[in-house]
Amino acid sequence: MTESLLSVRNLRVEFPTRRGTLVAVDDLSFDIAPGEVLGVVGESGAGKSLTGMAIIGLLEPPGRIAAGEIRLEGERIDNLSPEAMRRIRGKRIGAIFQDPLTSLNPLFTIGEQLVETILVHLDLNEAQARDRAVELLAEVGIPAPEIRIDNYPHHFSGGMRQRVVIALALCARPRLIVADEPTTALDVSIQAQIIELLRKLARENGAAVMLITHDMGVIAETADRVAVMYAGRLAEIGPVKDVIHAPQHPYTSGLMRSIPKLGEGRETLAQIDGAMPRLNAIPPGCAFNPRCLKRFDRCMHDRPSPMPAGATEAACWLYAR
């Protein structure tokens, strides 16, 4: 594998509460190479968004990184001061969030917001910054950017606003883009346009993209590799086509079979009985063991780490040799 751009090692995110400490992300490790799109999937509460927040340094207190390290181009960023982290955010890491309306300030034109961001991060004068802003808007596919730049966010539709948010995240040509559910609030026809755009940006700029979503279809179309999370832990990670077509972890294969697909028979869907455990009730051993049909003794008390399984890596004792 090429030199990784983002490297996460043994990350642990905790929330101290009155009734004990909740571990929301537990011993998570992965890498993303330049130009690569890593999809992170999981059900609500699996810890995928918190992982993204930890990387961009925006964990809401009392949440905190309790262990592990995060490296961006070899440099540790998990222990930086908020001030130092703020300089990295925007310049070297761009963030795109789910709701394009709340990510923009309704009182300023999108041009003002773009120019402000560009001036903070790049060594340009105001006129140059405005030219750059028009260029960015054109790049993300907004028609007539030299006119639209003076519009307010409410003049844009949902899909167009998400394009503006992406342009904002791209201002300083960041090396890493963290996109948390970027298409979830959008209709399916617009979603396809945004997916296409993200893929193009990763390819052309050599940026690493961490794409967090619950939608396997979006991952299949966009990502190169995919990490599947369950109860704060990594269940499986591998090339996207292997994880989708030959999942090794029992959770991943259950998840894949429970997704309705076009053009298949009309029999009942495969279902995983039960639900993901709450953070205060994660069972000992493998977190998936109460729902797993293939569990055996060792799963009940020993916690598995990701290990080679087929073409992927799965945290499952079935693959222990």
Partner: peptide, 24 residues
């Protein structure tokens, strides 16, 4: 046709989709 075409494809058959122009 456009709606069906726009569904992300889990099979990754590499079908070329006609990008949908415009919005509602």
């Amino acid at each position: 046709r456009m709606l069906i075409d726009a569904i992300p494809d889990l099979e990754m058959s590499g079908k070329s989709r006609t990008p949908v122009a415009g919005e509602v």
